[in-house]
């Protein structure tokens, strides 16, 4: 006979549990009770204690203050400091404008720097076509700017603006000095039709020396203004081919070199020419000769 239980020390001791002890042991061994006592109750007690501790306003303030201090100390570390800003691809004037617009006070912590906001600020400038903002190793803020290229000048309402190829304004300027190589457009709504104007300038290269400006009429069609007050009125649709027709006529007949005030090709099917005053008088006289009204 062997026993698997621990041998009892006292002789004559009854190893049998009392009925109550037996039932209590069994009750304690029931799975839900064990789970409740060993898992649920400790978790509840711990959660409650931590929650009660956190409910005290003084503790909350202490925690917030501590967290703020830790955060500030991390932010103030030299590894996260940004000391300078480099702007590439911008003219000195534009770079200065960008610096003023961003208005950063270096050194600044990397955590306080919102590169998206800086990007939006820079890209909102008229003269900037595109910008890329990066923070480089060693604590430098790098702004790579691509400027808009001025292609035309636009005079309207007494102001003079530089426009890029898409018609977007680059800057107001006071005078045309130094920018005389840029062609001039005028009239309301001319900025919306800058690509068309550029195509017209391109097509009108043979008479470029004589072109003074392109004038937008009623925000729908172009007039080409030449020197001597000559005007070529172009149609709304396909103005380039109309201008090419006029130029071809100029090549063959020298139309524009004559005393013609207005070449009207608004209706491409019917080209109309208004003569200058002298030519008109001359024509009248010639016609009178023809009719025999006037005699020499």
């Amino acid at each position: 006979m062997r026993t698997l239980t621990r041998p009892r020390r006292r002789y004559g001791h009854d190893p049998a549990p009392s009925r109550t002890a037996y039932r209590l042991t069994r009750f304690w061994l029931s799975p839900w009770l064990r789970w409740t006592v060993t898992t649920v109750l400790p978790v509840c007690a711990l959660t409650g204690a931590v929650g009660f501790w956190l409910m005290q306003p003084a503790q909350q303030q202490r925690i917030v203050a501590g967290a703020t201090q830790i955060r500030a100390s991390v932010e103030a570390r030299p590894e996260f400091q940004i000391r300078q800003m480099a702007i590439t691809g911008a003219s000195p004037v534009l770079a200065e404008t960008i610096r003023q617009r961003i208005g950063l006070d270096f050194p600044v912590s990397w955590f306080h720097l919102d590169t998206h906001e800086i990007h939006d600020t820079v890209a909102a400038l008229d003269a900037v076509a595109d910008a890329r903002v990066t923070v480089e190793l060693g604590g430098a803020l790098h702004i790579d700017v691509r400027e808009r290229e001025p292609v035309v000048l636009w005079r309207h309402d007494g102001a003079l603006e530089m426009l890029d190829a898409t018609g977007h304004r680059i800057a107001y300027i006071d005078r045309r000095d130094g920018l005389s190589f840029l062609p001039l457009v005028t009239g309301d709504g001319a900025d919306a039709a800058v690509p068309e104007a550029l195509a017209l300038f391109d097509a009108g290269k043979p008479i470029m020396k004589r072109v003074r400006a392109l004038m937008r009429q009623g925000a729908r069609r172009w007039d080409v203004v030449l020197d001597r007050g000559q005007v070529i009125e172009l149609p709304e649709t396909e103005p380039v081919s109309a201008l090419e027709r006029v130029l071809a006529m100029q090549d063959s007949t020298g139309l524009l070199t004559r005393d013609v005030a207005i070449v009207d090709i608004r209706d491409p099917a019917r080209l109309t020419v208004r003569l200058g005053p002298a030519a008109a008088e001359n024509l009248e006289t010639t016609r009178s000769f023809g009719k025999g009204i006037v005699s020499q």
Binding site: P15, A16, P17, Y22, T25, L29, P31
Partner: peptide, 16 residues
Amino acid sequence: AVRTVVQAAQKMAQVR
């Protein structure tokens, strides 16, 4: 005797 042995086995098994 049955109570003794069942209780001891339950204690070892940690299950009722």
